[in-house]
Amino acid sequence: MTTHYLVLSALLFSIGAVGVLVRRNAIVVFMCVELMLNACNLAFVTFARQHGNLDGQIIAFFVMVVAAAEVVVGLAIIVTIFRTRRSASVDDANLLKY
């Protein structure tokens, strides 16, 4: 049964990665990153159960804490970019390119 959970986690992670590569709206890209973090959490919880050891659950808890902090800062950046560029598309924020 553990293998099933791991495969599900890998699937969700890959779908999230494809979303990050494909989507252009910064907020949706961000949601896909959250999906990848969630998939990793599922793997952590599964390994905790597999090894009979609570450390995996603790790590998943810390991942959630870091993800919450990351969302707050990331969304603030998106709002700031939107204020100056009037757009939430990742294509428009290319000032650092040259």
């Binding site: 959970y5 599900l8 949601m31 905790a48 159960r49």
Partner: peptide
Amino acid sequence: LYAVQDAPFLAAVQIIVYTGAVMMLF
């Protein structure tokens, strides 16, 4: 799925932090 896998605390935190706070922020 967390709740099924003997992680009731994480299940609660997932709902409170993710579906509650993070989704609302999004």
